[in-house]
């Protein structure tokens, strides 16, 4: 058991190393770097100096060595397009808005989705079930990007109820400025309602039709005890195991919602860095987000084994 987890951890580190290397060489292959637009008009000597300062005058393999070594020490370098920004300041300044947005979306969407899922499973084939099915299919067919645009144009534009863009700053960073957060929260959270309602409904129906529930019923267990002791525990497995990925993804920012609502978060900054060819920031964000994602997948696997001993993932 311990051995397989250890093996898995090593595989995880190798994946990360490969992702970082691939990103580095991909970015090195781009024609034109972050500096070329700024320095084209400078005299040759000054240009050379600027390139020396950023280390961009070195050969690719040497830069690769330097970048990877620095990365091991947690140093991703300074932004080229946005002077003074390092990954540390990115995390300090850009992560809180993304994290608040993500948490609000989850707190709004997941409980509502679970509630609707239970109702749909309990009242299967009645109007509650039909309604939930139709609404969740509809919500799943509209990406958060489009939901956001529609909300902006209707509630922000036509009715003028909420500000269309912007995000609370300063003392309002975590609590306050709620009006700004409502539309972005809806844009992302409605999708969670749909996916969690569908997930829980399907897993509950699976459990309800299983033999052990039939056994529990036939031996005369009262309905609520069947549900609390047999149904909920087993139906919760897919929920427990998909929550970590949801949380990790939502906290690190949804690129599209942040872009259309102009929220100064991690996702929007990544798009900005991409358009500016800002190699250190792209590298840093890619490696950190990939690390978070891979670790979350690992935790999910461990959770699978913890909540359901029948599952043995690492037996090969």
């Amino acid at each position: 058991m311990l051995k397989v987890i250890l093996r898995r951890l090593i595989a995880l580190l190798i994946s990360l190393f490969l992702i970082a290397s691939a990103t580095f060489f991909l970015l090195a292959a781009v024609p034109g770097d972050a500096l070329s637009a700024q320095t084209d008009k400078l005299p040759a000597a000054t240009r050379k100096q600027v390139y020396q300062n950023t280390g961009l005058d070195q050969p690719v393999l040497k830069r690769y060595g330097i970048t990877m070594t620095n990365m091991l020490h947690g140093d991703f370098g300074t932004s080229i397009a946005d002077p003074g920004m390092t990954m540390k300041t990115v995390i300090e300044e850009k992560l809180p808005p993304s994290a608040r947005l993500g948490l609000q979306q989850i707190l709004f969407g997941v409980p509502l989705g679970l509630l609707l899922g239970v109702l749909a499973a309990v009242y299967k084939n009645r109007w509650v079930d039909r309604g939930v099915t139709v609404v969740s299919l509809l919500l799943m067919s509209v990406p958060s990007l489009i939901l956001g645009l529609l909300l902006q144009s209707y509630f922000g534009g036509k009715l003028g109820l909420f500000p269309i863009i912007g995000w609370p700053e300063g003392s309002d960073l975590w609590f306050g400025g709620w009006a700004y957060t409502i539309l972005p929260t809806l844009a992302g959270g409605l999708g969670y309602i749909a996916s969690y309602a569908r997930l829980l409904k399907n897993s509950m129906l699976d459990v309800l039709s299983s033999d052990y529930v039939l056994t529990a019923r036939t031996k005369g267990l009262p309905g609520w005890r069947v549900v609390s002791e047999h149904v909920i525990r087993n139906a919760a497995i897919p929920i427990i195991t998909s929550l970590p990925v949801t949380v990790a993804f939502s906290i690190t920012g949804s690129v599209f919602v942040e872009s259309i609502f102009v929220i100064p978060g991690v996702g929007q900054y990544f798009v900005q860095a991409l358009t500016n060819r800002d190699v250190p920031i792209i590298m840093g964000e890619t490696v950190l987000l990939a690390a978070l994602y891979i670790v979350t997948l690992f935790i999910t696997d461990l959770l699978y084994m913890a909540v359901d001993p029948r599952i043995k993932l690492y037996q090969s």
């Binding site: 995880l12 994946s15 992702i19 990103t23 991909l26 970015l27 292959a29 781009v30 690129v255 990544f270 798009v271 991409l274 358009t275 060819r277 792209i282 964000e285 890619t286 987000l289 990939a290 994602y293 891979i294 997948l297």
Partner: peptide
């Protein structure tokens, strides 16, 4: 499978 697909797609499109 462990690649965050959106990030990868965006990087490939840029490069």
């Amino acid at each position: 499978n462990s690649l965050p697909s959106l990030l990868v797609t965006m990087i490939i499109m840029t490069v």
